[in-house]
């Protein structure tokens, strides 16, 4: 299944105008400066906001089609979303958070084991570390058996060591889950490390030159995977 979107939405300072595709089993990183419209794009994909114009679809399922005024609700999309900051339910233990929308309740313990948080399963989110909360958020999203995984800067509030460890776990996860993954990040190294494709956004539009500016200005050279491609609006 391939995620396809081709949307426009007027924002306060510019118009978001994005067209991209992301096939199953691949991760598309969306990078760009703050305020480029990256999080709005994630909100549109998740159904929390609607585009002014355009189409979003996953495989043969249409999620948005403004020509027929069709907008599938977030509930009907069946996707997993890990937000920038922790959005675990504070009144529930880690285990109950993971089981909150689990398709198969038996998979909860497996996920807790896999992400190394089984020992804190009976604690509330307020009693665990930031890294553990974010692991739990991944478990919660995956327990839903999502058809698409959306990651909105999931590691940005974590320390470097935790970030690197989670990043490597995510790369392994990408191999296992045969679904499209969209990962919003402002960390270029993270994008190069994880992504199959990078979509660079500036002021709501594809801007591959922004990436070149960043890498040459900072004199950084990242190890680029062979398959990596820069995506422009199609």
């Amino acid at each position: 299944m391939t995620l396809r979107l081709d949307i426009r939405k007027k924002l306060a300072n510019f118009t978001l105008d994005v067209a991209l595709t992301c096939p199953s089993g691949t991760l598309t990183a969306i990078v760009g400066p703050s305020g480029a419209g990256k999080s709005t794009l994630v909100r549109i994909l998740s159904g929390l906001e609607q585009p002014d114009e355009g189409i979003v679809s996953l495989g043969d399922k249409l999620w948005n089609d403004t020509s027929t005024n069709f907008h599938a609700t977030p509930q009907k999309r069946g996707l997993g979303l890990v937000f920038q900051e922790y959005t675990l339910f504070p009144h529930l233990t880690v285990r109950k958070n993971v089981a909150f929308a689990a398709v198969d309740k038996n998979c909860v313990q497996d996920l807790l084991n896999k992400f190394g948080i089984a020992h804190i399963a009976d604690r509330k989110p307020s009693a665990i570390s930031g890294g553990e909360r974010q692991r739990a958020a991944f478990c919660q999203a995956l327990a839903r058996e999502p058809v698409l995984l959306l990651l909105d800067e999931p590691f940005s509030a974590l320390d470097i060591a935790t970030r690197e460890s989670l990043r490597s776990e995510l790369r392994n996860l990408k191999q296992e889950l045969n679904i499209p993954m969209i990962h919003v990040t402002h960390d270029l190294e993270e994008a190069y490390y994880l992504a199959d494709s990078i979509f660079v956004m500036e002021n709501g539009k594809a801007a591959p030159e922004w990436l070149e500016r960043q890498t040459s200005r900072r004199n950084i050279s990242f190890t680029t995977p062979q398959k990596l491609q820069l995506v422009e609006n199609m």
Partner: peptide
């Protein structure tokens, strides 16, 4: 309440009324 909790609940598939009883009320 943090509005993102409600949004997360919606993304996780809960209807508005289920979100009310399972997320809004207990918090």
């Amino acid at each position: 309440l943090d509005i993102r909790l409600l949004e997360n609940s919606a993304v996780l598939g809960l209807s508005a009324s289920a979100t009310f009883f399972r997320v809004v009320l207990p918090n």
